[in-house]
Amino acid sequence: MKNHLPLFALIALLLVVSCKDKEEPAPPHEVGVWALDSYLFINFPSEFEGYEGLAYDIDELSFGNGVVYDDYTLVLEKDGTYSLEIGVTGPDINDAGTWEIDDDELKLESTEDNDNQDWTIEKNEEDDLWLSFETQSAFIPDIYFDTVTQKYIDYLNTLTDQQLDSVSNAISRVVSFDLVYVFERD
């Protein structure tokens, strides 16, 4: 009888090599830590084109009651879970849950507070993730800026905050636009 040991060793070696070739696929590039860098205003009605593309740093916008983000970190894990940590003026906000990308939407399903979020993906690149949602706020139409003289601007600068709010409320309109959260890989 011939010794079949070398043949069995060769078969075992081939099995080990073929198993190593079947590595699991790389995770999607969205997996990782994303830090909010800034905000961008887009998709304004034509009468408000002057606001289109305005960008603000993370600490330049207030979200009511003086709430300003100090930092905002979104962590997307390979296993489909996420964590969110938002540093604000006051107690930090934390959330966790599951995430998925469906076409041009990033869906966050919270397991913490049922505050699910559906973001529209505006830009999705290796180091840039721009997520938006539609919102509303009051803005002054472009026509007022086109017709306002420097003398009127000087006058506005003399008003108290309350008086300025009154003038602003008289000429502003609530409009819908998209607020983009500009994330960068951390």
Score class of each variant (00 low, 15 high):
Asn114Leu: 11
Asn3Lys: 12
Ser168Ala: 12
Phe145Val: 10
Gly32Asp: 03
Asp113Gln: 09
Glu125Lys: 09
Tyr39Cys: 03
Glu77Cys: 09
Pro28Leu: 11
Leu14Arg: 02
Gln117Asn: 02
Glu30Pro: 00
Asn116Val: 02
Ser62Glu: 13
Lys2Leu: 04
Thr89Pro: 00
Glu77Phe: 13
Asp71Glu: 12
Glu100Lys: 14
Ser46Lys: 11
Phe63Pro: 03
Asn3Glu: 07
Val175Tyr: 02
Leu131Cys: 05
Leu156Thr: 04
Ile11Val: 14
Trp130Ser: 09
Trp119Val: 02
Asp59Trp: 00
Phe183Asp: 07
Gly80Val: 01
Tyr69Lys: 05
Ser38Ala: 14
Pro27Ile: 00
Tyr51Asp: 08
Asp21Ala: 14
Gln117Phe: 07
Ser176Lys: 11
Val17Tyr: 09
Leu108Pro: 03
Asp92Pro: 03
Met1Trp: 04
Ala26Gln: 14
Val167Phe: 15
Ala138Glu: 12
Ser46Ile: 09
Leu84Ala: 04
Phe133Arg: 14
Asp21Asn: 13
Arg185Gly: 02
Glu109Cys: 00
Asn43Lys: 15
Arg185Tyr: 02
Val16Glu: 08
Ser137Cys: 03
Val88Ile: 15
Asp71Tyr: 11
Gln150Thr: 10
Asn65Lys: 10
Asp79Thr: 03
Val167Pro: 12
Asp57Cys: 00
Asn94Ile: 15
Gln150Asn: 11
Phe63Tyr: 15
Asn114Tyr: 07
Leu15Met: 06
Ile121Gln: 10
Ser62Tyr: 00
Ser176Val: 09
Ile101Ala: 10
Ile93Lys: 13
Ser132Gly: 14
Lys22Ile: 01
Val67Leu: 13
Phe8Ala: 09
Gly87Tyr: 01
Leu10His: 00
Ser38Gln: 06
Ile11Trp: 01
Asp102Ser: 13
Lys22Pro: 00
Asp113Gly: 05
Lys22Ala: 08
Leu76Pro: 02
Asp79Ile: 01
Glu52Ser: 04
Asp21Arg: 12
Ala96Lys: 15
Ser176Tyr: 07
Val17Ser: 11
Thr120Trp: 11
Ser83His: 08
His29Tyr: 06
Ala96Trp: 13
Phe44Asn: 09
Asp92Arg: 04
Glu134Asn: 14
Thr160Asn: 11
Leu76Ser: 07
Phe183Asn: 03
Met1Asp: 10
Val182Trp: 01
Ser110Phe: 01
Ile140Arg: 11
Gln150Glu: 14
Asp142Tyr: 06
Lys22Met: 07
Asp103Ala: 14
Leu61Gly: 05
Thr73Glu: 13
His4Pro: 06
Asn3Ser: 07
Asp142Asn: 15
Phe145Ile: 08
Ala26His: 04
Gly64Gln: 09
Phe133Lys: 13
Tyr152Leu: 15
Tyr82Phe: 14
Ile58Tyr: 12
Asp154Phe: 04
Leu129Asp: 05
Ser137Lys: 05
Gly90Ala: 07
Lys78Trp: 04
Ser18Tyr: 01
Val175Met: 05
Leu36Pro: 05
Gly87Ser: 11
Asp113Val: 01
Leu36Tyr: 07
Tyr155Asn: 10
